[in-house]
Computed example of a mutant assay.
Amino acid sequence: METADLKLASDDDVAAASWIKPRLSRAFGAVTRHVPQGYAAYVRICHPAENDAGQQVTWSTVAAATGRQAHPTMQWHALVGSPDSLDMIGSLWPGDNPRRGELDPPTLATLCGALAPHTATPETCYFSLWEGHGWLPDGIPARVHHDYRSYILFTGPLHAAQQLGFHPRPDWFIPQSPNLFWPADQAWCVATEIDFDSTLVGGTSELVHQLLSEPALDAWPVNPDDSLAADADLINLIG
């Protein structure tokens, strides 16, 4: 797991994660159950889907194809007309579903590029990885504990977010985006909950405006108390 840029957290580093838990809401499905309260603005980045030709597409493209409506708190299963939020039984979409629990590498790279100018500490960042990833080596302790998840903590510069992952063999690397990451100055925070097919970012209004303007990101403005639970899509109702 360790590289020249990414290392396991020390005791002092773990203390640097203590600010997050007190700022997490307990409201089920809420944006701020996953990314801390107190930021000026929040954005939801929907993970790309793929069409039947293997090309990445936005959720708006899918909504146009399925006769649904794209909106900030849309849910994928409702967008594709399935009553099943897990297995997508009866889906109207012929392509692949968005990834859950991780950003694909190009989207993560675009996000990190947009985040970098909005922190004074891009060389000192913290990356939390959910302890339940099956590929993690035995013996690495989870040292950051929230009410509903425990994480292994790493440190490094912002670009090291793209170094997390594993080697099934020496010539093959499978990346895994962080489940939670932030800079030392706490200027923003990014959360990719393992059960979600979207990523949440809290930060300044200027940062969120930039993310919403980035054509490579399928980004939507959300409020701290907005729900992203499976039943939150009240526009694309099923049945």
Rank of each mutant, 00 (worst) to 15 (best):
T124P: 03
D96R: 13
A109K: 14
L103T: 05
A116F: 09
H118G: 14
L103P: 10
L92S: 06
P117H: 09
L115K: 07
P98M: 03
D104M: 12
A114W: 01
T107Q: 10
A114H: 13
T124F: 08
T124R: 15
W93C: 05
L115F: 02
T110H: 11
T107F: 01
P122F: 11
P98E: 01
D96G: 04
C112Q: 12
S91E: 10
P105L: 02
A116R: 10
P117L: 10
C112I: 15
S91F: 09
E123S: 13
A109I: 04
G95Q: 00
W93F: 12
E102A: 08
P106M: 04
D96F: 00
L92K: 09
D104G: 08
T107G: 02
L108W: 07
P106T: 06
G90V: 00
D96Q: 11
D104W: 13
H118M: 13
E123G: 14
P98T: 06
P106K: 09
L115W: 01
G113M: 01
D96I: 01
A114S: 07
A120R: 15
P122Y: 13
L115G: 03
L115R: 05
T119M: 04
G95T: 00
R99S: 07
G95E: 03
T110I: 11
G101A: 07
A116M: 12
T107P: 05
T107S: 08
G90K: 01
L108G: 01
T121L: 08
P106V: 05
R99G: 07
T119K: 11
E123Q: 13
L92G: 06
A120K: 15
A114V: 11
T107Y: 01
H118K: 12
H118C: 14
P105V: 06
G113W: 02
G95M: 00
P117D: 13
L92M: 10
H118S: 14
L115Y: 07
L108V: 05
G101D: 05
T107M: 02
N97P: 07
G113A: 11
L111Y: 08
E123M: 10
G90R: 00
G95N: 03
C112P: 04
D104Y: 14
T124M: 15
D96S: 13
P94F: 03
S91M: 08
T107V: 12
P105S: 03
T107K: 05
S91P: 09
N97C: 03
A114D: 14
A109Y: 03
W93E: 02
H118V: 09
W93K: 04
G113T: 10
A109W: 05
L108P: 01
G90M: 00
R100H: 09
P122H: 09
T119Q: 08
P94H: 10
C112W: 00
T124L: 13
T110L: 10
N97Y: 02
S91W: 02
R100K: 13
L115M: 02
P122A: 11
G95C: 01
R99P: 00
R99H: 08
G113H: 01
W93V: 05
P98S: 03
L92D: 04
W93R: 03
S91V: 12
A116L: 09
S91D: 12
L111V: 03
G101N: 03
